[in-house]
Design a protein around this nucleic acid. Sequence first.
DNA 1: TAACGTTGTAATCAAAAGAGTTACAACAAT
DNA 2: ATTGTTGTAACTCTTTTGATTACAACGTTA
Lengths: 147, 147
Amino acid sequence: MQISSRFTIAIHIFACINTFEKEYKITSDFLASSVNANPVIIRKLLQQLKAAGLVTVQRGSGGASIAKPLEEITFFDIYNAVECIDKGKLFHFHENSNKNCPVGRNIHHILDDKLERIQKAMEEEMKKITIADVIRDTRKYISEDIK
Amino acid sequence: MQISSRFTIAIHIFACINTFEKEYKITSDFLASSVNANPVIIRKLLQQLKAAGLVTVQRGSGGASIAKPLEEITFFDIYNAVECIDKGKLFHFHENSNKNCPVGRNIHHILDDKLERIQKAMEEEMKKITIADVIRDTRKYISEDIK
DNA sequence: TAACGTTGTAATCAAAAGAGTTACAACAAT
DNA sequence: ATTGTTGTAACTCTTTTGATTACAACGTTA
């Protein structure tokens, strides 16, 4: 299985807010239209991003905005905020191995450190990429697009 | 979402074969009992591992064995063999973004290289861990277990 | 202060994917 | 031939994701 599209949608949201906030009010309907998803899905994501301190959302009047400098928001922050993997574990473990078998009884201990190493390698790379990088490329592609 | 348990089960299979092949014939039923999964699931996995040249399976008489030196079988080999992520992509992309929106139209281009970087970091770490490492720790834990 | 547009959130539904299960033909060894 | 096993298809069950409906809470402004 793959990491949930909640992650790429969340990044999409940041790109949209930054690109359009001068011109439009950024509502969940507006974002849902760009992403092509249901507005309720967007609102849930915005709630999670808000809980992580990455965006602000105006209740009543409406509108979302980015809460921190772009270069301070890493992919890792977003990945944690939107809980795109289950219980923080990248690998799904077969939990019910046979405890009467010497291998079944120990397989979790045997693998845990190795799986963590791999997950950590991924997460460290995520920390190196920020929304500032996304915005830079968004502008680049949009300007090429228009030509 | 998480990476399918097919991956950890496959590693479990290698640990079992190596630990018990001197004593027992390693049938899909034997492995299924240690993993606590259905024998058909195990057979499908064995087929995939066989297709990747990592194990051999005897039809008719029965029994599986490891086809290569332990230190030449990396986690990356297994991960590829058992197709534990969808279409080789770690991240699920929201594919139907709005092509009339400048961001929706370009978001895939904008993100692809960054997602690949992250996936690659994970896969490179997977290449550094082998079944030899697993077997070493299996023996260690089992011997501690017995004391 | 009433009307309007929006957010926050619960509840329910539909679709997709993983894993389990049943069934049985193909095969090897005795 | 019989036995035990693999290879594989077909189907079901379960879990998870995302879609949808519904509506109260809230701000703004006319």
